[in-house]
């Protein structure tokens, strides 16, 4: 038995419109190509993380098997499966950042926010994530918050960045 779903009811109109823009980029029989952007868009509209229900909806929207969507959502590191902070601080600790003192940056953030990698502050404002090289080694040590890169980090710079995000 197959259920016919009115796809426009799966997500708010704005989300549907954003996903449709991506679907249009690919051949008409390759809607699945939009699974990565769709997951990102849906995640962004859900405070930065995915749920099983949302993944199932993405599958329905793109005519995919739910398992195929779970595979994508669990393979790529930018998809989150539990709550994250309003501001997700992604700190690079790979080689160029490491030899430029990323350990000290991580220690400073731990101390300042009172959380470790993988944790969220009590007020839900910040979460910390260790990430692999983000391709900005000329500005090491660096981190990403939202869409923005912050480079040449120092404890003082971190203090002012956090203050701005309050």
């Amino acid at each position: 038995m197959s259920l016919q779903v009115d796809k426009s009811t799966l997500f708010p109109a704005q989300v549907c419109a954003e996903i449709d823009k991506w679907i249009a980029k690919y051949p008409s029989d390759w809607k699945q190509s939009a699974s990565m952007p769709a997951l990102r868009i849906v995640q962004d509209h859900n405070d930065g993380y995915l749920t099983n229900e949302l993944m199932d909806k993405v599958a329905a929207y793109l005519d995919m098997a739910p398992i195929a969507v779970y595979e994508v959502a669990s393979f790529y590191s930018m998809y989150e499966h539990s709550k994250v902070g309003k501001h997700k601080l992604c700190v690079c600790t790979n080689i160029s950042c490491m030899i430029n003192g990323s350990d000290k940056i991580v220690d400073h953030l731990d101390e300042k926010l009172g959380i470790k990698f993988g944790e969220v502050t009590g007020d839900g404002k910040f979460s910390l994530k260790e990430v692999e090289c983000l391709g900005a080694c000329g500005g090491a040590p660096m981190m990403q918050i939202g869409e923005k890169y912050y480079e040449n980090l120092t404890p003082e710079l971190i203090d002012s960045i956090l203050k701005e995000l309050e």
């Binding site: 980029k25 190509s33 990565m36 393979f75 790529y76 590191s77 930018m78 998809y79 692999e132």
Partner: peptide
């Protein structure tokens, strides 16, 4: 010509 965005996978 279009962009496609990755999802974090080396």
């Amino acid at each position: 010509l279009h962009s496609h965005l990755g999802g974090g996978a080396y």
